[in-house]
């Protein structure tokens, strides 16, 4: 069942006089229950903004978002609040997401209190303790403060707090980037187990391609506010179609392919304020042709079903290729 529909959302910010920061530039995707969509890309590509837009945390400049058949706007009205119960978010830095003056147990109970769920405090506490156990936290930690916990324990507290409302969608923005390798693996396994138990959907945002491959069913690669490639995770990692995806995957150092040749892109990811003409990736693209400099390729479906925005991808068969 389709849970989240993001339809051509745009988010522009004013960036000084007559300059516009095009953070998100027409992003569309759908997400079904029990599925994980990974969004990858480098800083400034708009992946975190996309997450906030999907939750209605920031208003979109244009486009539509619906969740479980109901439209989401950033108006913080009663309807939004009731939908928000089903859509929770986990951020990168668990310490920043927690209140240092409250015990972690109180913080897990708090959403129940806010939404006036469960009959009384004892029932809320019982539910919170049960969740504590299911995310692998010892019950004696319930009365501790965030600073008394390790990074991995804190991220579990954040997860418990997000899960206590039994959301149908969990948006994770770099949930393990601040964690050590062995702890990150614990959290990823936990996320996979929770999904198997509850059928929750995940929007998993990360710059860590290895983690995304581990957890995502489907991947969307963003570059400068747009999705440039989207499809089944295994397919994209095995055989990237967009030159940017290809470079991004080849740039990830891995212990199992040491002497492998990397595609090293020139330059930095460009500034979303100075959007290049034509394909936004062409200034760094090792394969760009003249046409790429003048016309932006649309995201279109290729023969294997995946979406690619590149003039040179097989999907661009319809396009007349100019003599470069």
């Amino acid at each position: 069942m389709t849970l989240l529909i993001v339809d051509n959302i745009v988010k522009h910010y004013a960036a000084g006089e007559r300059r516009i920061l095009q953070a998100v530039n027409g992003v569309s995707f759908t997400l079904a229950a029990n599925r994980t969509l990974g969004i990858v890309g480098e800083s400034g590509c708009g992946k975190s903004t996309t997450a906030k837009l999907a939750l209605g945390l920031v208003p979109a400049s244009s486009g539509r978002i619906s969740f479980a058949g109901r439209e989401i706007s950033a108006l913080r009205d009663a309807r939004w609040r009731s939908l928000r119960r089903s859509m929770q978010m986990v951020y990168q830095d668990p310490l920043a997401a927690l209140d240092r003056r409250l015990t972690v147990g109180e913080q897990v109970i708090e959403p129940l209190t806010i939404h006036r769920l469960e009959a009384n405090h004892a029932a809320r506490r019982e539910k919170a303790l049960a969740l504590f156990a299911s995310v692998g936290l010892r019950s004696d930690l319930f009365t501790r403060y965030p600073h008394e916990l390790s990074g991995g324990q804190r991220q579990r507290v954040v997860l418990a707090r997000a899960l206590i409302l039994e959301p149908r969608l969990l948006i994770c923005d770099e949930p393990i980037s601040a964690l050590d390798v062995s702890v990150g693996a614990q959290v990823i396994n936990l996320l996979q187990d929770l999904k198997a138990q509850t059928g929750m959907a995940y929007l998993f945002i990360s710059h860590d391609l290895k983690m995304v491959r581990q957890i995502a069913d489907e991947v969307a690669v963003m570059y400068l506010g747009r999705i440039v490639e989207q499809g089944e995770s295994e397919e994209i990692f095995r055989n990237p179609a967009h030159p940017y995806t290809e470079a991004l995957i080849s740039a990830i150092p891995s212990i199992r392919r040491r002497s492998r040749d990397r595609i090293v892109l020139k330059g930095d990811p460009p500034n979303p304020v100075d959007m290049p003409a034509g394909c936004p990736f062409h200034p760094r693209c090792p394969r760009a042709i003249a046409h790429c400099r003048s016309e932006r390729p649309a995201l279109r479906q290729g023969p294997d079903g995946r979406l690619v925005a590149c003039h040179l991808a097989p999907s661009a068969g319809l396009l007349q290729r100019p003599a470069a």
Binding site: V181, S182, G184, A185, I188, L209, K210, M211, R213, Q214, E234, F237, I249, I252, S254, I255, R256, R257
Partner: peptide
């Protein structure tokens, strides 16, 4: 504990 980009998940 490390995921990888290649091989079976």
């Amino acid at each position: 504990a490390l995921p990888d980009l290649e091989g079976p998940r």
